[in-house]
Design a protein around this nucleic acid. Structure first.
Length: 363
DNA sequence: AAGTTCTTATTAC
DNA sequence: CTAACGGTAATAAGAACTT
């Protein structure tokens, strides 16, 4: 029995919220992300509205580039608290539509999966036809309710797996709805680019391109064996994805696995005041996060990116769980000192991450 | 030989 | 002065170590 999985993705989430909060932005290009600093900013675009996209701006683009493309756009900082609040409201709507006992799997602030298979489980044999029609109705209602309550548009994809549901939504955005039934999976996938497959990023795509493969239809010509020889274990995954095969269940994420902070300096630096000052701030923020989440840690990782963009990590795993700022600070500092001794280069970015977390209950 | 730990690479939002 | 990019997190894989 095929599952019915729904994937919802809010349209240009951060920027759409900003439009909603500031009606005067309507009809103007809006870019949410780092401060462009008159073309000298070091950050990137987080999200932008579709008008900004017309100028060639897109997510992850260096902010100075976005500023070049459209200096008259409205540039806004990321207001994460606000987006988190809105996200929570939206997830509450979704909860109502997930079958009893089934959890909503939230994968980011603005994306989630629901398993609607139960719509079919109760249907009679004679009525076999319309699980998918019912799912479509549910999707329409979800979209409507979110729009009513939050005045935000979204895109929903429905398919027999998380993979297909997600791809359906990706293709149809913004403000779209697309249902791919099991029989349509093949014809849906084949004409798409390999990069439309979640998990196939620029690196994997480039390797496949070198083999003359750019469409999923071409990718399917490679055997399981060939893909495995090329990509190892990963090749098996690719083989299955190309056929829409994805058995992963919809399940809410249990716990966080790591907590970290990174900072890119305004200017690359070697100044100990700046380096250690910032390092200390990063450490305390990470420790605060750890406390508020009520976790102890066992592994500390320090990330260092140099002027030439070379990025390295050093980590240390303690013999026991700890929830102690002094330990975090002293171990992290030792790791940082190793970097400073080994490399004489200017530092661009510093980061600290704790992992091997374990929940720590306070009595 | 097996289990950890350390490090890098890749992806995604 | 040529000028290529954030921050946060997960996951996988291999190398390097301990036991």
């Amino acid at each position: 029995m095929a599952r019915i999985i729904l994937h919802i993705d809010m349209d240009y989430f951060f920027a759409q919220i900003e439009e909603r909060e500031n009606p005067q932005f309507k009809g103007k290009p809006v870019v949410v992300g780092a401060d462009p600093k008159n073309g000298k900013g070091r950050g990137v675009v987080s999200t932008c509205n579709y008008l900004a996209r017309k100028y060639g701006i897109h997510s992850a683009m260096p902010i100075y580039r976005a500023f070049e493309l459209c200096p008259q756009a409205i540039f806004l900082p990321v207001n994460m608290e606000l987006y988190q609040k809105v996200s929570k409201q939206i997830m509450e709507v979704l909860e109502k539509y997930s079958a009893s006992g089934k959890e909503v799997e939230q994968t980011s602030l603005d994306e989630a999966y629901l398993d609607l298979s139960d719509l079919g489980a109760t249907a009679q044999k004679a009525d076999k036809t319309d699980y998918w029609g019912k799912a479509e109705k549910v999707a329409e209602k979800i979209k409507e309710e979110i729009f009513e309550k939050e005045k935000l548009t979204s895109t929903i994809g429905i398919g027999p797996s998380k993979l297909i549901a997600k791809m359906a939504a990706q293709i149809k955005k913004p403000n779209g709805l697309l249902i791919i039934k099991p029989n349509d999976v093949e014809s849906f996938l084949e004409p798409l680019d390999i990069e439309n497959l979640p998990g196939i990023g620029p690196k994997t795509a480039e390797k496949l391109m070198a083999l003359g493969i750019d469409k999923i239809k071409e990718l399917k010509k490679l055997s399981r064996k060939e893909l495995q020889q090329f990509f190892g274990k990963w090749g098996i995954d690719i083989f299955e994805k190309a056929r829409g095969v994805d058995e992963k269940p919809v399940a809410a994420k249990e716990t966080i696995k790591s907590i970290g902070r990174e900072h890119t300096f305004e200017k690359d630096t070697r100044d100990p005041e700046i380096i250690f000052g910032r390092f200390e701030e990063i450490i305390s923020v990470v420790f605060q996060e750890l406390l508020s989440a009520n976790f102890s840690f066992r592994t500390i990782t320090v990330i260092c990116r140099f002027q030439d963009f070379e990025t390295h990590t050093k980590s240390k795993t303690l013999p026991n769980q700890a929830q102690d700022l002094k330990i975090l600070r002293s171990e992290a500092k030792k790791l940082l000192l190793r970097f400073l001794i080994e490399k004489p280069k200017l530092i661009r970015l510093l980061g600290v991450r704790v992992s091997s977390l374990s929940p720590k209950s306070v009595d």
